[in-house]
Simulated scan of single mutants.
Amino acid sequence: MRYIRKASERGHANFGWLNSHHSFSFGRYYDPEHMGISVLRVINDDRVAPGRGFETHGHKDMEILSYVIEGQLAHKDSTGNSDVIPAGDIQRMTAGRGIMHSEFNGSDKDEVHFLQIWVLPAQNALTPGYEQKTIQQSGALTPMVTPDGRAGTVKVHQDMTLSRLRLSENESISIATEKRMGYLHVIKGEISIDSESFEAGDGLGVYQDDTLQIHAHDDTEALWFDLPQL
């Protein structure tokens, strides 16, 4: 059994300064058939105009990950963090018992394109926190976010791992879930899985004891979420 989420079927909100596509229900977009998978609740594919962004607002009891695809994202929060996240970096903000933050395009000239990802924490009322790292690719599948922050990864307060998948044209890889669940989100390029094609913005959810045979038709980047069974 697999869950297929095509880019063209996602929720969409365009406010002029923000053009956002929602893989799962978010804000004004609600679809009971698309509420997330396992502890993964939000993947928003956001493009923000130069010099614009999200004014200061609050979050609570959520692990919020940001992965910048193009441009740079400026972050400020109520715990004193103030950073600019360049393309390729991964950021984690633990909202915990409550945090205020803002996110703006870090450029006055170029658009910023990033993924905003929300993951349910293993427990509520955590101490708010922040972490940001540049993680070099090592092999086709490189962990970026892990439960224990191993090997220089960003630590998340949940039993899940987020890895970046990069394949060259005609390269293939096999990923098995075993007793876990998984979700693949394509960032760029085109891949095929069991004769079905997936392109930028497409997603595929898989359940336990499944194996994905992924073949890249061109240079491809994607995110792979290794998730717990609920």
Rank of each mutant, 00 (worst) to 15 (best):
I193V: 15
V68H: 02
L227N: 04
K133Y: 01
F24P: 10
R2P: 04
G71K: 01
D108V: 12
E33M: 13
L115Q: 07
A216K: 01
E103R: 14
G36E: 12
A87W: 04
R10D: 13
Q116R: 13
P228L: 04
R180D: 08
R166S: 14
K76C: 03
E111V: 08
E178C: 00
T153C: 10
H101E: 12
E111D: 14
A125F: 15
S195G: 07
E171T: 05
V112D: 11
H59F: 07
D209Q: 15
G149C: 09
G139H: 06
A200W: 07
H217G: 04
H21A: 11
L212C: 00
V145H: 05
Q208F: 06
P147H: 05
V145C: 03
Q132N: 14
K60N: 13
S168Q: 15
F225R: 12
H12V: 12
S23Y: 01
G98L: 05
I37Y: 02
M160L: 14
E111K: 03
Q229I: 10
V186M: 15
D226T: 10
N124L: 12
E196I: 13
V48G: 03
S195F: 14
E221C: 07
A222R: 01
A95Q: 04
R2F: 09
W17Q: 10
E169V: 12
I214F: 00
A7T: 05
S197L: 14
D202A: 02
Y130L: 06
V156N: 04
I4F: 03
F225E: 00
